[in-house]
């Protein structure tokens, strides 16, 4: 059982996953952000591998990715940074990126390297489900590496069940039809979708992402899933900060989401 699975064994609700783009706002903030997120009360940390053409992401994450790439972030450097921080924290680490980055690194080499440096799971939104199933599933099982697939309001039940069967860790439940950071607040329609999926009684926990930005939306999302994911709102909170300002701002952000007075 890897750290993600252990987390969901121990914690069935209010699981907070926070996303940040590696190399943003500064090239070497990765370690400080991970440690501060854990200190502030995040249960999971999702690390974005900055990409030149992030199709599923809105303006905020696109711009943070451009900054990160301009800062000099690369996949080998990110893996080094993760290897360095891993002994200092037990928080589960999930890498999110686009399949082309992984292809260029070499898929199998990348997944093995993830395991070696202490990454617990990956999210590759544009990797086809059948590609995972046919080419990488057995490797993930051998490595005990987590994998999350996305479901959306348009995903039909058959496909949700297929995703549930392949997931290792949690299901990434996209809250609405949108790119990241597009909307705020939760609508009636979304609640109907949350209820519909909840009624399916899936075997894996769900985290709701896209449009979750603060204490209120996080709390609402947690009523319909085991937890939620915040990305763009945190990126906005980090924008323009100097390295020495990053830890305090990170702790304060997480505490505000948790509703803890700092």
């Amino acid at each position: 059982m890897n750290r993600i699975q252990q987390l969901f064994e121990q914690k069935k609700s209010d699981v907070l996953n926070i996303y940040f783009t590696a190399g943003f706002p500064n090239l070497h903030d990765t370690e400080a952000i991970i440690l501060a997120l854990e200190q502030g009360g995040a249960d999971l940390v999702e690390i974005g591998m900055p990409y030149s053409d992030p199709l599923a992401d809105g303006t905020t994450i696109q711009e943070s990715s451009m900054t990160a790439l301009e800062n000099g972030m690369t996949l080998p450097l990110l893996l080094e940074q993760i290897a360095a921080v891993r002994p200092k924290t037990t928080v589960p680490l999930v890498l999110m990126g686009y399949f082309n980055q992984v292809m260029q690194y070499g898929e199998e080499r990348f997944f093995r390297q993830c395991k070696e440096v202490g990454v617990d799971g990956v999210i590759l939104p544009d990797m086809p489900v059948y590609v995972y199933e046919e080419q990488f599933r057995s490797l993930f099982e051998t490595l005990d590496l987590g994998i999350s697939f996305l479901i959306t309001p348009q995903t039909n039940e058959e496909r949700i069940r297929q995703v549930d069967a392949l997931t290792r860790g949690f299901i990434y439940m996209v809250s609405s039809s949108s790119i990241t950071g597009a909307k705020s607040g939760i609508s009636e329609q979304q609640l109907a979708y949350f209820n519909r999926v909840q009624a399916l009684q899936l075997q894996h926990p769900r985290l709701i992402g896209f449009g979750i930005s603060n204490h209120d939306t996080f709390s609402t999302a947690c009523q319909y899933a085991q937890g939620a994911i915040i990305g763009s709102a945190f990126i906005k909170a980090l924008a323009g900060l100097q390295p020495e300002q990053v830890p305090a701002a990170t702790v304060a952000f997480v505490q505000a989401v948790r509703g803890v007075a700092s």
Binding site: S52, D53, L55, T74, L75, F99, N100, M103, Q104
Partner: peptide, 20 residues
């Protein structure tokens, strides 16, 4: 070189790190 752009596996101009 071989990679993915706009949802298809094809030849594209990219860096070693897979940035387009």
């Amino acid at each position: 070189t071989k990679g993915i752009i706009h949802g298809s596996r094809t030849l594209l101009m990219q860096t070693e790190d897979g940035q387009i």
